[in-house]
Design a protein around this nucleic acid. Structure first.
Lengths: 291, 291
DNA sequence: TAGAACTCCTTATGCCATAAGGTGTTATCC
DNA sequence: GGATAACACCTTATGGCATAAGGAGTTCTA
């Protein structure tokens, strides 16, 4: 039952995000100018603790109580530093993005760069699944997320496509990576939370379905055909071109599924970018996209 | 602060989902065989009321209290019919999918069919944004969602691609449509909830950013270039770099952005599917995918 | 007609965010 | 150097949530 999604007062979040570390309340020590007791905490420390709490228990959203417990104070004490939970979430979100690398090797092609960018983002989301709960509409773009955006923008501009097209591509890339990572993360979390492995889940689900809907195969033949694995004769023939994976027990079923879906989907998406480039360079006889 | 995401006991959800309407508790009337007072409600009625409640207030997740209020009973009465909130959510989720059309015109090409399928799914999500809060991992596939899946499977098999590739494509399509719809829906909801239009939001955000990060343009040149609209000749000088948009009041800024991103992203994705087909039909000299 | 089964209610528990207001600490001004 | 005002942090209260526990009334069956 993951919880959070919205954000708080954007103006206050942005002020906290973009103001330097010398801003009021941002640090415990510093040139104090005001009366009152010394501040025991700082925004940075709170954000750090909140991230740790969210990482430690990603299923249930972070609670101010849990954060406060980590810091040895009451939840109300946090309100001195942060306007509320929503704003704290914004801060956590941006701070976490500082983990992502911002440069890309310009000697590689745009496609290789995009592929590794997407892979890095995906593993970032898998490390911090709670990040995916933060809404994407009306983004409170903090410096670190903006840097991620900047990196991707730098990569896609090398395709030579116009900005309007690139906006669509960037958005599609983000949605794809986020969606895939969310599925993968939730499947992992479900396994640890319920104590039921993916394998167990799927077999029990299948047998249930068989009992409850005996006519499943006739009603949904295409679905069955889609989910049926290829007849894999030995090890690694090239019938499944993308990222074949030997069924060692180390990687559970769903994990393998999402990994493969990621490789295939990303490849197809970038193939589409390439094709869109070719379409533009071709003489106007090339059929326009039949949307 | 949208809330819900997980699901409840899958076995019980599946029993409720797949059992016919004559199953115990599914209907108010029927061949009663047991003592006790008549059932005033039914699972179907509860699910219907819950969907109505969720549609009416999609920001905050549905609460059992709200559903009960609609039905003129207490929240605890619902527990007689439904094991808990998670299972109710599963039922709502599947029931809502009954709205989607399941056939597709086989005379049209796969691409046209996929495009209209995606468009229909997107507008469905926009009608019922709460559906997007239901997790995608360990799906409790009910009959109606399965029918949607079946339709898409039928479409993509007409590309002739192998099932493993198609799984990746299907997954990418879903993630793309879901992500885009979620962004669009949240942006709409934010507008009505905060009473601040997208236009207002973006201008206030821009001016805030200008004050808090005066060096934004130097730090993030690519982002600026990406968000800058193509040089539309007249209308508004380009001194305000962020997201200028001719202000027709009909379609607000973000709405236009997400609509365009949907069209472009979908087109690129399907272009990639097409290109992947061509790659497979080509002689083996065609460069394999450089993942 | 007694009893069992069943529905639905009231009440209680334990989470959660956060509003309200009290108490002790501390820098600054007279 | 002491008064004072600003401030951090606490306790307590409010209202919302899911749901556990148990009680009261209704209706079928033996």
């Amino acid at each position: 039952m993951s919880v959070f999604a919205g954000q708080g007062d954007a103006a206050r979040s942005m002020a906290l995000l973009w103001s330097g570390p010398d801003a009021p309340g941002h640090q415990a020590e510093g040139l104090r100018r005001s009366p009152g007791p010394k501040r025991a905490l700082s925004v940075d420390v709170i954000v750090e603790a909140a991230i740790a709490a969210a990482d430690a228990d990603p299923m249930t959203g972070v609670s101010l109580r849990a954060v406060a417990e980590r810091l040895g104070c009451t939840s109300m004490a946090l309100y001195t530093y942060v306007p509320g939970k929503g704003e704290l979430l914004d801060l956590m979100y941006d701070r976490a993005h500082a983990e992502l690398s911002t440069g890309h090797d310009p000697s590689r092609g745009w496609r290789a760069a995009a592929t590794s960018w997407a892979g890095e983002l995906r593993s970032f989301y898998l490390r911090h699944p709670w990040v995916l709960q933060v809404s994407y509409a009306r983004p409170v773009l903090g410096p670190h997320e903006q840097a991620v955006m900047e990196t991707l923008a730098g990569i896609v501009f090398r395709t030579g496509l116009p900005a309007a097209t690139l906006r669509g591509i960037v958005s599609a890339l983000f949605h794809f990576v986020r969606g895939n990572a969310q599925t993968a993360a939730e499947s992992r979390l479900a396994a640890t939370a319920t104590g039921m492995s993916d394998q167990e889940w799927w077999t029990s689900r299948s047998s249930l379905l068989e009992r409850l809907a005996p006519d499943f195969a006739e009603r949904f033949p295409m679905s069955i055909r889609l989910s049926t694995p290829e007849p894999v004769p030995a090890r690694r023939d090239e019938s499944t071109p993308h990222g074949e994976h030997q069924a060692d027990e180390a990687t559970p079923y769903m994990e393998h599924q999402t990994d493969e879906a990621f490789a295939v989907g990303l490849s197809v998406l970038l193939e589409g970018v390439d094709a869109t480039r070719n379409n533009l360079s071709l003489p106007p006889s090339a059929a326009a996209d039949a949307s």
